[in-house]
């Protein structure tokens, strides 16, 4: 049922020429996906997809749409070749599915080989009820480090691509007022919600060991809170609370914290990211390690998301000013 909804949304996206609608639909697509992930027992993934896919990515798309034309130009695209490629890909995929283990089959090789150890032993080896967190932060902690670095790399990319000089900033700010100065109801409600959002982010950050959640989701929610504030109260006010340079430093700091934990492990005699050595008791060491690296993840993700939003918004301000 959900899958059919998804298919419908996707087809609608191909047909629409209005990019604004396309972006909204893709947000809906993400949200539907999140529900589907939930249905497939992937709570952490659902949480991330909802906050990242439906939240931040839609937001970034909208921020871009403010800067570029809203309608797709109807042009003669070359559907024949594209359709050909797609059909070949599809044929290969369908062909590949023929020998797949069936959906939900408990005897599939996936459930026989590596995963049982995570499910059976992680409680003794890592000591967290949320197996996803154990695998994410400890067994495959290095992948997660890589992923934080990917986020950092994207942050660096956007920072370097969308730079606005200090001079333009100073001049533009005096001329361009914040968009939503007059939305009184919005501002009041946002003021009520903001502390709660931030507290919720912290809850997600530190409760990730026991339930769905963790650094990524927390980082994104925290960033969402700040972004909400920025949208309503204007860039200049936000930036006097949170210095952009400071946020940029924070993006780096999260990565440093994460990889620093690994290096400390090495100095203490373990392998890289082997948290066992962090404390006299391995399980305790694991706890400490996971806490720290999740914090690193949260800091980098939040800082990068905030920076992304700042950069896009500055670009908009600059454009307005230039006009």
């Amino acid at each position: 049922m959900l899958l059919s909804f998804l298919a419908l949304t996707a087809i609608a996206i191909t047909r629409m020429g209005d990019l604004f609608a396309v972006v909204m639909l893709s947000g809906i697509y993400s949200l539907l996906s999140a529900s589907l992930f939930l249905d497939l027992d992937a709570v952490d993934v659902a949480f991330t997809e909802a906050s990242v896919g439906a939240g931040i990515s839609t937001l970034l798309f909208l921020a871009t749409l403010k800067l570029v034309p809203r309608y797709e130009k109807k042009s003669r695209y070359k559907p024949a070749l594209a359709l050909g490629v797609v059909i070949v890909t599809g044929a290969l995929l369908i062909y590949g599915t023929l020998d797949m283990p069936h959906f939900g089959d408990a005897d599939a090789p996936v459930h026989q080989h590596v995963a049982p150890r995570y499910l059976n032993d992680s409680i003794n080896e890592v000591g967290l009820p949320n197996v996803v967190t154990s695998v994410l932060a400890s067994y495959r902690g290095y992948d997660t480090l890589g992923e934080v670095v990917v986020v950092f790399a994207a942050g660096i990319g956007v920072m370097s691509l969308l730079m606005v000089s200090q001079r333009t900033k100073a001049r533009a700010l005096t001329k361009v007022p914040a968009d939503m100065q007059h939305q009184i109801i919005l501002r009041i409600v946002a003021k009520m919600m903001l502390p709660l959002i931030l507290i919720f982010a912290l809850y997600v950050q530190f409760h990730g060991d026991y339930g769905p959640g963790g650094g990524f989701q927390a980082g994104v929610i925290f960033a969402a809170g700040i972004i909400l504030y920025t949208m309503l109260f204007g860039l200049s006010l936000t930036q006097s609370v949170i210095k952009p340079v400071f946020v940029e430093m924070l993006t780096a700091f999260g990565v440093l914290l994460y990889s620093g934990v690994g290096i400390v492990c090495m100095i203490l005699g373990g392998n890289y990211l082997d948290y066992d050595v962090l404390s006299h008791d391995p399980v305790h060491g694991q706890h400490l390690g996971i806490l720290l690296i999740e914090l690193g993840v949260g800091i980098t993700v939040a800082a990068v998301m905030i920076t992304l939003f700042f950069k896009f918004t500055w670009r908009t301000v600059k454009h307005k000013y230039n006009q």
């Binding site: 480090l145 670095v149 950092f152 940029e248 430093m249 993006t251 780096a252 700091f253 990565v255 440093l256 990889s259 620093g260 690994g262 290096i263 090495m266 392998n271 890289y272």
Partner: peptide, 21 residues
């Protein structure tokens, strides 16, 4: 013994440091 990982970790750790310099 740590050479295989140091190789990758040194630039990885250095990259964010650049932002501080």
């Amino acid at each position: 013994a740590h050479f295989p990982i140091l190789q990758v970790i040194i630039p990885l750790f250095a990259a964010p440091l650049c932002l501080f310099l």
